[in-house]
Design a protein around this nucleic acid. Sequence first.
DNA 1: TCAAAAGTGTTTTGTTTACACCCATGC
DNA 2: GCATGGGTGTAAACAAAACACTTTTGA
Lengths: 244, 244
Amino acid sequence: MGGTGAVRDMEEARVGTAAHEVLAVVFQVRAGRLCVLLWRRARPPFEGDWVLPGGRLGADEGLGQSMRRQLAQKVDVRDLAHLEQLETRGAPDRHPEGRTLATAYLGLVPAHNEPVIPGDTAWHAISELPPMGFDHAAIVHSGRRRLRAKLSYTNIGFALAPPEFTMSQLSGYYRAALGHDVAATNLRRVLLRRGQIEETGRSVPSGRSGGRPAAVFRFRVSHLEVTDEFAVLRPPPKRAEKIY
Amino acid sequence: MGGTGAVRDMEEARVGTAAHEVLAVVFQVRAGRLCVLLWRRARPPFEGDWVLPGGRLGADEGLGQSMRRQLAQKVDVRDLAHLEQLETRGAPDRHPEGRTLATAYLGLVPAHNEPVIPGDTAWHAISELPPMGFDHAAIVHSGRRRLRAKLSYTNIGFALAPPEFTMSQLSGYYRAALGHDVAATNLRRVLLRRGQIEETGRSVPSGRSGGRPAAVFRFRVSHLEVTDEFAVLRPPPKRAEKIY
DNA sequence: TCAAAAGTGTTTTGTTTACACCCATGC
DNA sequence: GCATGGGTGTAAACAAAACACTTTTGA
Protein backbone atom coordinates (compact mmCIF):
# COMPACT_ATOMS: atom_id res chain seq x y z
CA MET A 1 0.00 0.00 0.00
CA GLY A 2 1.08 3.55 -0.69
CA GLY A 3 2.04 6.16 1.80
CA THR A 4 -1.32 7.84 2.25
CA GLY A 5 -1.72 5.95 5.51
CA ALA A 6 -4.66 5.81 7.81
CA VAL A 7 -7.16 7.75 5.77
CA ARG A 8 -6.87 5.47 2.76
CA ASP A 9 -6.85 2.32 4.89
CA MET A 10 -10.05 3.36 6.58
CA GLU A 11 -11.70 4.09 3.30
CA GLU A 12 -10.75 0.77 1.83
CA ALA A 13 -12.06 -1.14 4.77
CA ARG A 14 -15.43 0.43 4.30
CA VAL A 15 -17.51 -1.82 2.08
CA GLY A 16 -18.70 -0.27 -1.14
CA THR A 17 -16.38 2.68 -1.33
CA ALA A 18 -13.46 2.83 -3.68
CA ALA A 19 -11.34 5.22 -5.66
CA HIS A 20 -12.59 5.75 -9.17
CA GLU A 21 -10.75 6.95 -12.22
CA VAL A 22 -11.61 7.55 -15.82
CA LEU A 23 -9.33 6.53 -18.68
CA ALA A 24 -9.44 7.44 -22.34
CA VAL A 25 -8.53 5.35 -25.34
CA VAL A 26 -8.14 8.14 -27.88
CA PHE A 27 -7.55 6.97 -31.41
CA GLN A 28 -6.47 8.85 -34.46
CA VAL A 29 -5.37 7.62 -37.88
CA ARG A 30 -1.92 9.06 -38.46
CA ALA A 31 0.16 8.32 -41.55
CA GLY A 32 -2.10 5.43 -42.44
CA ARG A 33 -1.88 3.76 -39.04
CA LEU A 34 -4.30 3.62 -36.16
CA CYS A 35 -2.65 5.35 -33.21
CA VAL A 36 -3.54 5.79 -29.56
CA LEU A 37 -2.61 8.70 -27.32
CA LEU A 38 -0.47 7.54 -24.38
CA TRP A 39 1.05 9.26 -21.43
CA ARG A 40 4.44 8.38 -19.99
CA ARG A 41 4.48 7.76 -16.26
CA ALA A 42 7.10 9.70 -14.42
CA ARG A 43 6.94 7.79 -11.15
CA PRO A 44 6.18 4.40 -9.67
CA PRO A 45 4.34 2.22 -10.03
CA PHE A 46 5.09 1.45 -13.67
CA GLU A 47 7.54 4.34 -13.90
CA GLY A 48 8.63 4.84 -17.49
CA ASP A 49 5.80 2.73 -18.85
CA TRP A 50 3.06 4.21 -20.93
CA VAL A 51 -0.52 4.52 -19.68
CA LEU A 52 -3.83 5.88 -20.84
CA PRO A 53 -4.61 9.53 -20.12
CA GLY A 54 -7.13 10.03 -17.35
CA GLY A 55 -7.35 10.51 -13.64
CA ARG A 56 -9.47 10.60 -10.54
CA LEU A 57 -13.17 11.23 -10.75
CA GLY A 58 -14.05 14.56 -9.16
CA ALA A 59 -16.44 14.76 -6.23
CA ASP A 60 -19.34 16.17 -8.18
CA GLU A 61 -18.60 15.12 -11.71
CA GLY A 62 -20.39 12.76 -14.00
CA LEU A 63 -18.22 10.14 -15.63
CA GLY A 64 -18.35 11.56 -19.14
CA GLN A 65 -17.92 15.05 -17.79
CA SER A 66 -14.85 14.02 -15.84
CA MET A 67 -13.44 12.28 -18.90
CA ARG A 68 -13.79 15.44 -20.97
CA ARG A 69 -12.22 17.55 -18.29
CA GLN A 70 -9.22 15.27 -17.90
CA LEU A 71 -8.81 14.90 -21.62
CA ALA A 72 -8.83 18.66 -22.06
CA GLN A 73 -5.43 18.66 -20.37
CA LYS A 74 -4.05 16.43 -23.13
CA VAL A 75 -5.98 17.21 -26.29
CA ASP A 76 -8.21 20.09 -27.14
CA VAL A 77 -11.69 18.76 -26.58
CA ARG A 78 -12.82 20.45 -29.80
CA ASP A 79 -10.64 17.94 -31.62
CA LEU A 80 -12.60 15.03 -30.18
CA ALA A 81 -15.30 14.11 -32.66
CA HIS A 82 -16.70 11.25 -30.59
CA LEU A 83 -16.57 9.91 -27.06
CA GLU A 84 -18.37 6.86 -25.73
CA GLN A 85 -18.13 4.65 -22.69
CA LEU A 86 -16.20 1.46 -23.19
CA GLU A 87 -16.02 -0.64 -20.04
CA THR A 88 -15.33 -0.53 -16.33
CA ARG A 89 -12.59 -2.57 -14.76
CA GLY A 90 -12.62 -3.39 -11.09
CA ALA A 91 -10.27 -6.27 -10.37
CA PRO A 92 -9.18 -5.81 -6.74
CA ASP A 93 -5.50 -6.01 -7.67
CA ARG A 94 -5.54 -3.92 -10.82
CA HIS A 95 -3.90 -1.01 -9.06
CA PRO A 96 -0.90 -1.85 -6.85
CA GLU A 97 -1.45 1.14 -4.58
CA GLY A 98 -4.97 0.31 -3.55
CA ARG A 99 -8.42 -0.47 -4.76
CA THR A 100 -9.22 1.63 -7.82
CA LEU A 101 -12.01 1.16 -10.30
CA ALA A 102 -11.56 2.54 -13.77
CA THR A 103 -14.16 3.45 -16.34
CA ALA A 104 -12.67 3.60 -19.81
CA TYR A 105 -13.92 5.68 -22.71
CA LEU A 106 -13.30 5.49 -26.41
CA GLY A 107 -12.48 8.82 -28.03
CA LEU A 108 -11.82 9.61 -31.68
CA VAL A 109 -9.86 12.46 -33.22
CA PRO A 110 -10.35 13.00 -36.97
CA ALA A 111 -7.32 12.46 -39.17
CA HIS A 112 -5.17 15.48 -40.03
CA ASN A 113 -6.13 17.25 -36.83
CA GLU A 114 -2.94 18.03 -35.04
CA PRO A 115 -3.91 18.75 -31.45
CA VAL A 116 -1.28 20.26 -29.22
CA ILE A 117 -0.30 17.59 -26.72
CA PRO A 118 1.94 17.82 -23.67
CA GLY A 119 5.54 16.71 -23.83
CA ASP A 120 4.94 13.63 -21.77
CA THR A 121 2.30 12.25 -24.14
CA ALA A 122 2.71 10.75 -27.59
CA TRP A 123 0.82 8.91 -30.30
CA HIS A 124 1.70 5.24 -30.64
CA ALA A 125 0.65 2.93 -33.46
CA ILE A 126 -1.42 0.17 -31.94
CA SER A 127 0.55 -2.38 -33.93
CA GLU A 128 3.63 -1.35 -31.94
CA LEU A 129 2.47 -0.57 -28.44
CA PRO A 130 5.24 0.26 -25.99
CA PRO A 131 5.39 -1.40 -22.55
CA MET A 132 2.22 -0.34 -20.78
CA GLY A 133 1.32 -0.15 -17.11
CA PHE A 134 -1.67 -1.49 -15.19
CA ASP A 135 -4.28 -3.20 -17.39
CA HIS A 136 -4.19 -0.41 -19.92
CA ALA A 137 -2.97 -2.44 -22.89
CA ALA A 138 -6.02 -4.67 -22.58
CA ILE A 139 -8.24 -1.60 -22.53
CA VAL A 140 -6.64 -0.33 -25.74
CA HIS A 141 -7.54 -3.59 -27.42
CA SER A 142 -11.11 -3.37 -26.15
CA GLY A 143 -11.29 0.04 -27.75
CA ARG A 144 -9.98 -1.24 -31.03
CA ARG A 145 -12.52 -4.06 -31.11
CA ARG A 146 -15.31 -1.61 -30.39
CA LEU A 147 -14.21 0.78 -33.13
CA ARG A 148 -13.81 -2.02 -35.60
CA ALA A 149 -17.26 -3.42 -34.94
CA LYS A 150 -18.95 -0.05 -35.11
CA LEU A 151 -17.40 0.76 -38.45
CA SER A 152 -19.54 -2.05 -39.86
CA TYR A 153 -22.96 -0.98 -38.70
CA THR A 154 -22.76 2.69 -37.70
CA ASN A 155 -21.58 5.95 -39.24
CA ILE A 156 -18.67 6.19 -36.80
CA GLY A 157 -16.34 6.91 -39.71
CA PHE A 158 -17.35 10.56 -39.34
CA ALA A 159 -15.12 10.73 -36.27
CA LEU A 160 -12.13 9.23 -38.06
CA ALA A 161 -12.27 11.44 -41.13
CA PRO A 162 -11.79 15.20 -41.41
CA PRO A 163 -14.85 17.26 -42.41
CA GLU A 164 -14.13 16.74 -46.11
CA PHE A 165 -12.24 13.97 -47.82
CA THR A 166 -11.87 11.99 -51.00
CA MET A 167 -12.91 8.37 -51.16
CA SER A 168 -9.35 7.12 -51.38
CA GLN A 169 -8.50 9.04 -48.22
CA LEU A 170 -11.53 7.65 -46.47
CA SER A 171 -10.68 4.13 -47.50
CA GLY A 172 -7.26 4.74 -45.97
CA TYR A 173 -8.83 5.60 -42.62
CA TYR A 174 -11.00 2.51 -42.78
CA ARG A 175 -8.03 0.41 -43.71
CA ALA A 176 -6.04 1.67 -40.75
CA ALA A 177 -8.88 1.13 -38.30
CA LEU A 178 -10.07 -2.23 -39.63
CA GLY A 179 -6.65 -3.67 -40.29
CA HIS A 180 -7.39 -4.83 -43.79
CA ASP A 181 -7.78 -3.37 -47.26
CA VAL A 182 -10.99 -1.54 -48.09
CA ALA A 183 -11.70 -0.93 -51.76
CA ALA A 184 -12.54 2.75 -52.20
CA THR A 185 -14.90 2.02 -55.06
CA ASN A 186 -17.12 -0.28 -53.03
CA LEU A 187 -16.84 1.72 -49.82
CA ARG A 188 -18.23 4.65 -51.74
CA ARG A 189 -21.30 2.75 -52.80
CA VAL A 190 -21.95 1.21 -49.42
CA LEU A 191 -21.73 4.53 -47.60
CA LEU A 192 -23.77 6.36 -50.23
CA ARG A 193 -26.45 3.68 -50.13
CA ARG A 194 -26.66 3.96 -46.39
CA GLY A 195 -26.89 7.71 -46.63
CA GLN A 196 -23.78 8.21 -44.49
CA ILE A 197 -21.87 10.40 -46.94
CA GLU A 198 -22.69 12.88 -49.69
CA GLU A 199 -20.79 14.73 -52.38
CA THR A 200 -19.83 18.32 -51.70
CA GLY A 201 -19.82 19.02 -55.45
CA ARG A 202 -16.20 20.05 -55.36
CA SER A 203 -13.13 18.08 -56.31
CA VAL A 204 -9.45 18.21 -55.56
CA PRO A 205 -6.87 18.61 -58.34
CA SER A 206 -4.87 15.52 -59.11
CA GLY A 207 -1.30 15.27 -57.85
CA ARG A 208 1.90 15.63 -59.86
CA SER A 209 1.62 12.11 -61.15
CA GLY A 210 -1.66 12.91 -62.86
CA GLY A 211 -4.92 11.09 -62.53
CA ARG A 212 -8.49 12.19 -62.51
CA PRO A 213 -9.39 14.75 -59.84
CA ALA A 214 -11.13 13.14 -56.89
CA ALA A 215 -14.61 14.17 -55.79
CA VAL A 216 -14.83 15.58 -52.28
CA PHE A 217 -17.28 14.00 -49.84
CA ARG A 218 -18.49 14.72 -46.35
CA PHE A 219 -20.46 12.78 -43.74
CA ARG A 220 -24.07 13.84 -43.56
CA VAL A 221 -24.34 13.65 -39.78
CA SER A 222 -21.60 14.02 -37.25
CA HIS A 223 -22.98 12.12 -34.30
CA LEU A 224 -23.21 8.37 -33.90
CA GLU A 225 -26.06 6.68 -35.70
CA VAL A 226 -26.76 3.04 -36.34
CA THR A 227 -27.16 2.81 -40.11
CA ASP A 228 -27.43 -0.93 -40.59
CA GLU A 229 -29.26 -2.13 -37.53
CA PHE A 230 -30.77 -5.42 -38.52
CA ALA A 231 -28.12 -7.20 -40.52
CA VAL A 232 -30.40 -10.16 -40.12
CA LEU A 233 -33.59 -11.00 -38.27
CA ARG A 234 -35.03 -7.70 -39.31
CA PRO A 235 -38.68 -7.08 -38.57
CA PRO A 236 -41.22 -7.79 -41.31
CA PRO A 237 -41.38 -4.69 -43.54
CA LYS A 238 -45.13 -4.51 -44.13
CA ARG A 239 -47.74 -4.75 -41.46
CA ALA A 240 -44.85 -4.76 -39.01
CA GLU A 241 -46.95 -5.11 -35.90
CA LYS A 242 -44.40 -4.69 -33.19
CA ILE A 243 -45.35 -6.51 -30.04
CA TYR A 244 -43.98 -3.72 -27.90
CA MET B 1 -27.71 14.55 1.64
CA GLY B 2 -28.71 11.66 3.86
CA GLY B 3 -28.27 11.39 7.56
CA THR B 4 -25.13 9.35 7.71
CA GLY B 5 -23.29 12.45 8.76
CA ALA B 6 -19.65 13.26 9.07
CA VAL B 7 -18.11 10.04 7.83
CA ARG B 8 -19.97 10.10 4.52
CA ASP B 9 -19.43 13.82 4.08
CA MET B 10 -15.72 13.40 4.50
CA GLU B 11 -15.61 10.63 1.98
CA GLU B 12 -17.54 12.57 -0.56
CA ALA B 13 -15.36 15.59 -0.22
CA ARG B 14 -12.31 13.52 -1.02
CA VAL B 15 -11.78 13.63 -4.75
CA GLY B 16 -11.90 10.30 -6.51
CA THR B 17 -13.66 8.20 -3.92
CA ALA B 18 -17.25 7.12 -4.18
CA ALA B 19 -19.63 4.39 -3.23
CA HIS B 20 -19.98 1.75 -5.90
CA GLU B 21 -22.76 -0.70 -6.51
CA VAL B 22 -23.47 -3.40 -9.04
CA LEU B 23 -26.88 -3.87 -10.62
CA ALA B 24 -28.26 -6.73 -12.67
CA VAL B 25 -30.68 -6.62 -15.56
CA VAL B 26 -31.74 -10.27 -15.52
CA PHE B 27 -33.98 -11.27 -18.39
CA GLN B 28 -36.03 -14.40 -18.93
CA VAL B 29 -38.67 -15.19 -21.51
CA ARG B 30 -41.77 -16.17 -19.56
CA ALA B 31 -45.08 -17.02 -21.22
CA GLY B 32 -43.90 -15.57 -24.48
CA ARG B 33 -42.84 -12.24 -23.00
CA LEU B 34 -39.45 -10.83 -22.16
CA CYS B 35 -39.36 -10.27 -18.41
CA VAL B 36 -36.90 -8.65 -16.04
CA LEU B 37 -36.31 -9.56 -12.42
CA LEU B 38 -37.10 -6.63 -10.12
CA TRP B 39 -36.91 -6.08 -6.42
CA ARG B 40 -39.40 -4.04 -4.46
CA ARG B 41 -37.91 -1.38 -2.24
CA ALA B 42 -39.15 -1.50 1.32
CA ARG B 43 -37.86 1.88 2.40
CA PRO B 44 -37.03 5.35 1.14
CA PRO B 45 -35.87 6.60 -1.17
CA PHE B 46 -38.23 5.23 -3.78
CA GLU B 47 -40.10 3.16 -1.22
CA GLY B 48 -42.55 0.88 -2.95
CA ASP B 49 -40.94 1.36 -6.33
CA TRP B 50 -39.19 -1.43 -8.12
CA VAL B 51 -35.45 -1.51 -8.63
CA LEU B 52 -32.80 -3.75 -10.09
CA PRO B 53 -31.26 -6.38 -7.84
CA GLY B 54 -27.74 -5.60 -6.72
CA GLY B 55 -25.86 -3.88 -3.96
CA ARG B 56 -22.62 -2.49 -2.71
CA LEU B 57 -19.34 -3.67 -4.09
CA GLY B 58 -17.38 -5.57 -1.48
CA ALA B 59 -13.96 -4.38 -0.35
CA ASP B 60 -12.01 -7.09 -2.15
CA GLU B 61 -14.34 -8.16 -4.88
CA GLY B 62 -14.10 -7.86 -8.61
CA LEU B 63 -17.12 -6.35 -10.30
CA GLY B 64 -18.34 -9.54 -11.97
CA GLN B 65 -17.61 -11.49 -8.84
CA SER B 66 -19.66 -9.09 -6.75
CA MET B 67 -22.49 -9.24 -9.26
CA ARG B 68 -22.61 -13.03 -9.03
CA ARG B 69 -22.52 -12.96 -5.26
CA GLN B 70 -25.36 -10.48 -5.01
CA LEU B 71 -27.38 -12.25 -7.61
CA ALA B 72 -27.01 -15.52 -5.76
CA GLN B 73 -29.28 -14.04 -3.11
CA LYS B 74 -32.03 -13.60 -5.71
CA VAL B 75 -31.61 -16.33 -8.28
CA ASP B 76 -29.57 -19.46 -8.14
CA VAL B 77 -26.43 -18.59 -10.04
CA ARG B 78 -26.59 -21.97 -11.78
CA ASP B 79 -29.69 -20.68 -13.54
CA LEU B 80 -27.76 -17.80 -15.08
CA ALA B 81 -26.61 -18.89 -18.51
CA HIS B 82 -24.88 -15.62 -19.35
CA LEU B 83 -23.64 -12.50 -17.63
CA GLU B 84 -21.92 -9.55 -19.26
CA GLN B 85 -21.12 -5.99 -18.31
CA LEU B 86 -23.50 -3.42 -19.67
CA GLU B 87 -22.60 0.11 -18.61
CA THR B 88 -21.58 2.27 -15.69
CA ARG B 89 -23.61 5.22 -14.57
CA GLY B 90 -22.12 7.99 -12.53
CA ALA B 91 -24.32 11.06 -12.65
CA PRO B 92 -23.64 12.95 -9.40
CA ASP B 93 -27.34 13.11 -8.56
CA ARG B 94 -28.37 9.62 -9.54
CA HIS B 95 -28.64 8.52 -5.93
CA PRO B 96 -30.44 10.94 -3.59
CA GLU B 97 -28.53 9.76 -0.54
CA GLY B 98 -25.08 10.47 -1.85
CA ARG B 99 -22.67 9.90 -4.62
CA THR B 100 -22.99 6.33 -5.87
CA LEU B 101 -21.65 4.86 -9.07
CA ALA B 102 -23.36 1.83 -10.49
CA THR B 103 -22.03 -0.77 -12.88
CA ALA B 104 -24.84 -2.67 -14.54
CA TYR B 105 -24.69 -6.20 -15.90
CA LEU B 106 -26.90 -8.07 -18.30
CA GLY B 107 -27.85 -11.56 -17.13
CA LEU B 108 -29.92 -14.19 -18.91
CA VAL B 109 -31.92 -17.08 -17.47
CA PRO B 110 -33.04 -19.74 -19.96
CA ALA B 111 -36.79 -20.14 -20.46
CA HIS B 112 -38.61 -22.74 -18.37
CA ASN B 113 -36.09 -22.45 -15.56
CA GLU B 114 -38.04 -21.57 -12.47
CA PRO B 115 -35.49 -20.22 -10.03
CA VAL B 116 -36.59 -19.75 -6.46
CA ILE B 117 -36.75 -16.02 -5.87
CA PRO B 118 -37.38 -14.10 -2.64
CA GLY B 119 -40.81 -12.79 -1.83
CA ASP B 120 -39.85 -9.18 -2.44
CA THR B 121 -38.74 -9.86 -6.01
CA ALA B 122 -40.83 -10.58 -9.08
CA TRP B 123 -40.63 -10.92 -12.85
CA HIS B 124 -42.09 -8.04 -14.82
CA ALA B 125 -42.76 -7.98 -18.54
CA ILE B 126 -40.67 -5.20 -20.00
CA SER B 127 -43.67 -4.01 -21.97
CA GLU B 128 -45.35 -3.21 -18.66
CA LEU B 129 -42.69 -2.00 -16.32
CA PRO B 130 -43.92 -0.84 -12.93
CA PRO B 131 -42.80 2.50 -11.46
CA MET B 132 -39.08 2.16 -10.98
CA GLY B 133 -36.64 3.96 -8.73
CA PHE B 134 -33.35 5.72 -9.51
CA ASP B 135 -32.24 5.45 -13.12
CA HIS B 136 -33.02 1.77 -13.24
CA ALA B 137 -35.70 1.88 -15.94
CA ALA B 138 -33.19 3.39 -18.34
CA ILE B 139 -30.74 0.62 -17.50
CA VAL B 140 -33.37 -2.02 -18.30
CA HIS B 141 -33.79 -0.49 -21.72
CA SER B 142 -30.04 -0.49 -22.27
CA GLY B 143 -30.08 -4.17 -21.49
CA ARG B 144 -32.86 -4.82 -23.93
CA ARG B 145 -31.06 -2.99 -26.70
CA ARG B 146 -27.92 -4.98 -26.03
CA LEU B 147 -29.76 -8.29 -26.05
CA ARG B 148 -31.62 -7.41 -29.19
CA ALA B 149 -28.47 -6.41 -31.06
CA LYS B 150 -26.54 -9.48 -29.98
CA LEU B 151 -29.29 -11.83 -31.14
CA SER B 152 -28.44 -10.68 -34.66
CA TYR B 153 -24.75 -11.41 -34.75
CA THR B 154 -23.92 -13.76 -31.87
CA ASN B 155 -25.15 -17.08 -30.53
CA ILE B 156 -26.63 -15.43 -27.43
CA GLY B 157 -29.85 -17.35 -27.99
CA PHE B 158 -28.27 -20.20 -26.06
CA ALA B 159 -28.87 -18.23 -22.89
CA LEU B 160 -32.52 -17.61 -23.66
CA ALA B 161 -33.42 -21.17 -24.57
CA PRO B 162 -33.40 -24.29 -22.37
CA PRO B 163 -30.81 -26.96 -23.22
CA GLU B 164 -33.14 -28.58 -25.74
CA PHE B 165 -35.97 -27.07 -27.70
CA THR B 166 -38.01 -27.25 -30.86
CA MET B 167 -37.72 -24.61 -33.51
CA SER B 168 -41.14 -23.19 -32.82
CA GLN B 169 -40.22 -22.79 -29.16
CA LEU B 170 -36.98 -21.10 -30.11
CA SER B 171 -38.72 -18.74 -32.48
CA GLY B 172 -40.99 -17.84 -29.56
CA TYR B 173 -37.99 -16.84 -27.45
CA TYR B 174 -36.60 -14.78 -30.30
CA ARG B 175 -39.97 -13.17 -30.86
CA ALA B 176 -40.23 -12.18 -27.21
CA ALA B 177 -36.72 -10.77 -27.09
CA LEU B 178 -36.75 -9.00 -30.45
CA GLY B 179 -40.28 -7.70 -30.22
CA HIS B 180 -41.37 -8.90 -33.64
CA ASP B 181 -42.31 -12.13 -35.34
CA VAL B 182 -39.57 -14.55 -36.27
CA ALA B 183 -40.47 -17.29 -38.75
CA ALA B 184 -39.36 -20.63 -37.33
CA THR B 185 -38.61 -22.02 -40.75
CA ASN B 186 -36.11 -19.32 -41.66
CA LEU B 187 -34.66 -19.06 -38.18
CA ARG B 188 -33.82 -22.73 -38.45
CA ARG B 189 -31.88 -22.24 -41.62
CA VAL B 190 -30.05 -19.17 -40.44
CA LEU B 191 -28.91 -20.76 -37.19
CA LEU B 192 -28.00 -24.06 -38.85
CA ARG B 193 -26.02 -22.26 -41.50
CA ARG B 194 -24.12 -20.36 -38.86
CA GLY B 195 -23.45 -23.54 -36.95
CA GLN B 196 -25.18 -22.25 -33.82
CA ILE B 197 -27.63 -25.13 -33.39
CA GLU B 198 -27.72 -28.82 -34.20
CA GLU B 199 -30.32 -31.59 -34.16
CA THR B 200 -30.31 -33.93 -31.20
CA GLY B 201 -31.84 -36.65 -33.39
CA ARG B 202 -34.87 -36.89 -31.14
CA SER B 203 -38.31 -35.39 -31.59
CA VAL B 204 -41.23 -34.52 -29.38
CA PRO B 205 -44.68 -36.03 -29.93
CA SER B 206 -47.26 -33.71 -31.37
CA GLY B 207 -49.91 -32.23 -29.12
CA ARG B 208 -53.59 -33.20 -28.91
CA SER B 209 -54.40 -31.11 -31.95
CA GLY B 210 -52.16 -33.23 -34.14
CA GLY B 211 -49.36 -32.11 -36.35
CA ARG B 212 -46.04 -33.52 -37.24
CA PRO B 213 -43.70 -34.15 -34.30
CA ALA B 214 -41.05 -31.46 -33.96
CA ALA B 215 -37.35 -32.20 -34.10
CA VAL B 216 -35.40 -31.34 -30.96
CA PHE B 217 -32.41 -29.03 -31.29
CA ARG B 218 -29.70 -27.76 -29.02
CA PHE B 219 -27.11 -24.99 -29.19
CA ARG B 220 -23.68 -26.30 -30.05
CA VAL B 221 -21.81 -24.00 -27.68
CA SER B 222 -23.05 -22.43 -24.49
CA HIS B 223 -20.84 -19.42 -24.17
CA LEU B 224 -21.02 -16.24 -26.15
CA GLU B 225 -19.52 -16.35 -29.63
CA VAL B 226 -19.73 -13.89 -32.48
CA THR B 227 -21.04 -15.91 -35.39
CA ASP B 228 -21.55 -13.20 -37.97
CA GLU B 229 -18.74 -10.79 -37.33
CA PHE B 230 -18.37 -8.87 -40.56
CA ALA B 231 -21.85 -8.23 -41.79
CA VAL B 232 -20.16 -5.92 -44.19
CA LEU B 233 -16.67 -4.65 -44.87
CA ARG B 234 -15.33 -8.10 -44.27
CA PRO B 235 -11.67 -8.70 -45.02
CA PRO B 236 -10.77 -10.11 -48.44
CA PRO B 237 -11.13 -13.92 -48.22
CA LYS B 238 -8.02 -14.95 -50.19
CA ARG B 239 -4.56 -13.62 -49.61
CA ALA B 240 -6.05 -11.74 -46.68
CA GLU B 241 -2.86 -10.02 -45.67
CA LYS B 242 -3.78 -8.40 -42.42
CA ILE B 243 -1.82 -5.28 -41.75
CA TYR B 244 -1.61 -6.06 -38.08
C1' DT C 1 -59.75 -38.44 -44.21
C1' DC C 2 -59.05 -34.00 -42.51
C1' DA C 3 -56.91 -30.41 -39.78
C1' DA C 4 -52.74 -29.03 -37.66
C1' DA C 5 -48.06 -28.38 -37.12
C1' DA C 6 -43.31 -29.25 -38.89
C1' DG C 7 -40.20 -29.30 -42.48
C1' DT C 8 -38.38 -28.83 -47.48
C1' DG C 9 -37.83 -26.73 -52.07
C1' DT C 10 -37.68 -22.88 -54.67
C1' DT C 11 -38.09 -18.14 -55.90
C1' DT C 12 -37.40 -13.42 -54.99
C1' DT C 13 -35.09 -9.74 -53.01
C1' DG C 14 -31.42 -7.18 -51.38
C1' DT C 15 -26.71 -6.23 -50.48
C1' DT C 16 -21.89 -6.53 -51.12
C1' DT C 17 -17.78 -7.87 -53.65
C1' DA C 18 -15.14 -8.46 -57.92
C1' DC C 19 -13.70 -6.91 -62.07
C1' DA C 20 -13.66 -4.89 -66.58
C1' DC C 21 -13.81 -0.69 -68.60
C1' DC C 22 -14.26 4.40 -69.20
C1' DC C 23 -12.86 9.32 -67.63
C1' DA C 24 -9.99 13.35 -66.50
C1' DT C 25 -5.73 15.13 -65.69
C1' DG C 26 -0.32 16.00 -65.58
C1' DC C 27 3.69 15.41 -67.95
C1' DG D 1 -0.31 10.10 -76.10
C1' DC D 2 0.14 7.70 -72.18
C1' DA D 3 0.65 6.69 -67.42
C1' DT D 4 -2.01 7.49 -63.27
C1' DG D 5 -5.48 7.54 -60.34
C1' DG D 6 -10.75 8.18 -60.06
C1' DG D 7 -15.28 6.60 -61.27
C1' DT D 8 -19.07 3.76 -63.48
C1' DG D 9 -21.31 -0.38 -65.16
C1' DT D 10 -22.20 -4.89 -64.57
C1' DA D 11 -21.87 -9.48 -63.24
C1' DA D 12 -21.21 -12.80 -59.59
C1' DA D 13 -21.71 -14.34 -54.90
C1' DC D 14 -24.22 -14.75 -51.01
C1' DA D 15 -27.61 -14.56 -47.54
C1' DA D 16 -32.07 -14.01 -45.93
C1' DA D 17 -37.17 -13.60 -46.51
C1' DA D 18 -41.36 -15.23 -48.66
C1' DC D 19 -44.20 -18.66 -50.00
C1' DA D 20 -45.90 -22.90 -51.94
C1' DC D 21 -45.81 -27.54 -51.14
C1' DT D 22 -44.89 -32.00 -48.73
C1' DT D 23 -44.62 -34.83 -44.50
C1' DT D 24 -46.28 -36.69 -40.24
C1' DT D 25 -49.14 -36.90 -36.76
C1' DG D 26 -53.99 -36.87 -33.74
C1' DA D 27 -58.74 -37.27 -33.83
